[in-house]
Design a protein around this nucleic acid. Structure first.
Lengths: 354, 354
DNA sequence: ATGCCGATTGGCAACGCTGTCAAGATTGCG
DNA sequence: CGCAATCTTGACAGCGTTGCCAATCGGCAT
């Protein structure tokens, strides 16, 4: 079984760099140079080596590469409490970037709700054991100071998805929640709506606050004087139902409701159907996220689409392309997806504004 | 910077097995034995080594381990066309099993809709490059003959999630779809329902056929003579709407509808609200999967819960525990989740059965 | 005591690749 | 035309572990 000596194909196992070198008649190191696209390689040599690589169907061994070199060719995706839709899209984007760069994707789950000490050791285990070239942090890890401190202290590269506190602290990929909510306001306003309801999210959620502010600011900028009715929806379906009931019980029902995420918007829709309020005939409803639920309700929800897959891709690309870790932010474009839950308000005597 | 010679802590880097050996005053190989729980290690030596490991906070280097040994300590999770909810749960289960065994989870996405040649090379790249100790296959990869052939030919270990064709071919984890659908039938029957509607899934989907058969067989076994009205829902929300409209348009409306997955059940619910049919007062509705949407509709959907996370865990555990790869199946328990979309049928003159 | 056998322990060569450094090839310039 | 500067290429020593084989240590039958 030691007949490996003269054969190119080294018996049963797969071709190694050694095999390629022999086949091409060059040194081991030269093959390494070609594989790693290092400079100072003549065209001729590169061609020879590439031909040999193709001939032998050579694929570098990751384990050996990471042992010998400093790179591991692995990107870690960290999440906590994953919301299926969001996380899967993100993961798809990160994965795509990884394959584009010949990297691999490793998944790790971190429960940030545990004690700082436990969290610390958990992170330690992940970082040391994984030896990743970089991590992508998803919310709520994104905004967890302890996690950030940990990575910074270790000098481990990472990119934050949708950071909302200390935004400039490290590289991140995000959308402008405020502007997005503003665009919803403007859209509804332009349609003629003047009486609004707002379903807010959890107070501790950074994006929730921005969406609320963006919506309210735009409206007052547009000249709205009447106050916007608010109800807490907690970003959940059930919360949305409650909030919807509240908003619908008011003396002057709003003609349009903006729920700051899709789940609560779906809840509002239930409240409407319970109250006999037709969407969008009697009430326009707008969500945020373009999550999967937006097309699992009837009528389909008009909502803000975040390019989540794109954000994952951008984050990983950040890690992979820019070896310098200067803090830098990448803001991606949201867009308003017009579906069926929004219409102009029903005719009333309410053409009040000058 | 080469002052590593006498120190235990080897400067800036992390402790290596060498450091542990020195600290414990034993040989390198002995540390390896302890770490790998190999036999022929005296209690005394093991204690010493373990103490040293704890002292130095030693964590083995995966890259070195996989390079030197035959194991890689990585499990690959392969999916295609991931449905967010299902996949995330599965992934969570697989991940849990991995951490329990000190393994890592690597994700790979395979598009099985491409040409066989492309698929072949894609699989080749994944298997060779990943060098995983085993793969978990999710539907529809689970039932793709080419994928199965590929892995079998390479002698790569894998476990199938929810196999439905050639079930005995390789290790797999599944539930009894037929029995689950049967339990729905019995549940509705016991409540007094005698006029049924069935929303079917895609014909090419193995589980869809089983659910239909299980439902129908149970009903006829129970003595139902009236035919069950069927409509194609294609496992989708929109398909469910159409199917629901169809079913509801019939002369004798069914008093209970079984949609073979939750998405289509949600669609049926929309059809109901459009038709002014109250759920569950006028019509009972039952889904299948207990996916996330089951609690994103109102009323909450009564459905069959598959232990998806558990299935992922079981699959990975299979890979990790049983080093022998005898085909073996593990059937997990489903259960009927009673929520709010099912009730006894409204009183009619229809107490027909003897 | 003597010799032998199995249980322990250690030594050392891979594993496949990259980093460092030096040697050879080529070019430019005085 | 010679020598330095630069570009290309190669040799070789690890990276941190495991696998294999040899050495050592007890204990037990003789």
């Amino acid at each position: 079984m030691k007949a490996k000596i003269e054969s190119d194909l080294a018996g049963a196992g797969h071709a190694t760099m050694q095999d390629v070198a022999r086949h091409a008649g060059v040194s081991l190191k030269s093959v390494s140079r070609v594989v790693n696209r290092e400079p100072h390689v003549s065209e001729k040599l590169r061609m020879k080596v590439e031909a040999a690589i193709a001939d032998l169907n050579y694929i570098p061994d990751i384990a050996a590469r990471s042992l010998a070199g400093s790179r591991t060719f692995i990107i870690g995706l960290l999440f906590d409490n994953p919301s299926p839709n969001y996380t899967m899209k993100l993961q798809a984007g990160v994965y795509r970037a990884c394959t584009e760069h010949g990297y691999h994707l490793r998944i790790d789950n971190v429960d940030s709700s545990c004690s700082p000490a436990v969290l610390e050791s958990r992170l330690d285990a992940i970082v040391r054991n994984s030896r990743c070239d970089g991590f992508v942090l998803t919310p709520p890890l994104t905004d967890n100071p302890q996690v950030l401190d940990f990575f910074d202290a270790r000098g481990v590269r990472y990119v934050r998805i949708a950071p909302s506190v200390e935004v400039d602290r490290s590289p991140g990929v995000l959308i402008d929640d405020e502007a997005a909510a503003g665009s919803v306001a403007r859209y509804l306003w332009d349609l003629g709506h003047r009486r609004f309801g707002l379903v807010t999210g959890p107070v501790e959620h950074g994006a929730a606050a921005k969406r609320r502010a963006g919506f309210l600011d735009m409206l007052s900028g547009l000249g709205l004087t009447e106050p916007v009715a608010e109800a807490a929806g907690g970003f959940s379906f059930e919360g949305g139902i409650t909030a919807g009931q509240q908003l619908l019980a008011a003396q002057h029902k709003p003609t349009a409701i903006f729920a700051t995420n899709d789940d609560s918007a779906a809840g509002v829709m239930v409240a409407c159907s319970q109250a006999g309020v037709a969407v969008p005939a009697d009430l326009s409803l707008c969500g945020f996220d373009d999550s999967w639920i937006a097309k699992s309700v009837w009528p389909y929800l008009t909502t803000i689409s975040q390019p989540i897959e794109e954000m994952g891709h951008a984050a990983a690309t950040f890690l992979l392309d820019r070896r310098d870790s200067q803090p830098a932010l990448r803001t991606l474009q949201f867009h308003l997806v017009q579906r069926d839950s929004v219409a102009a308000p029903a005719q009333e005597k309410s053409t009040s504004v000058a």
